[in-house]
């Protein structure tokens, strides 16, 4: 992922309104040493770029910009790589237009 595209999606997320449920992330990545192919796919497939590699080469998720589409659940839940729920009622993304 080059710098140009990473800037772009973050800029996009600035248009949106969120109510972040601090301390209660609705998605969790199972602890791992080496990421599975499914986890690696999420680095690209997540439309909000919530998944990133840390410096140990493991996949981490930051849900602040999550649009709750469920793509990562479809890809990563069957293998047990991630745990996925909706945010608590009222939290998360708040679409004005949708």
């Amino acid at each position: 992922m080059n710098a140009e595209s990473s800037v772009r999606v973050e800029e996009k997320l600035f248009y949106n309104r969120y109510l972040v449920d601090v301390g209660h992330p609705h998605i969790k990545v199972r602890a791992h040493m080496k990421p599975s192919p499914q986890l690696l796919a999420l680095l690209k497939a997540c439309p909000a770029r919530c998944y990133e590699l840390n410096d140990k080469g493991q996949v981490e998720v930051t849900v602040d910009g999550c649009m709750e589409c469920g793509t990562c659940r479809i890809i990563g839940e069957p293998s047990g790589d991630i745990e996925w729920s909706y945010p608590r009622g009222g939290y998360g993304v708040l679409f004005k237009f949708g």
Binding site: K12, K44, A45, P47, R49, T71, I75, F97
Partner: peptide, 22 residues
Amino acid sequence: CISLGIGCLVADFQRTAEAPYR
């Protein structure tokens, strides 16, 4: 306003590693 977008199968995103926003 103009609403515009693009959608593709999740399996295809997974296979091609194309980023949706790109």
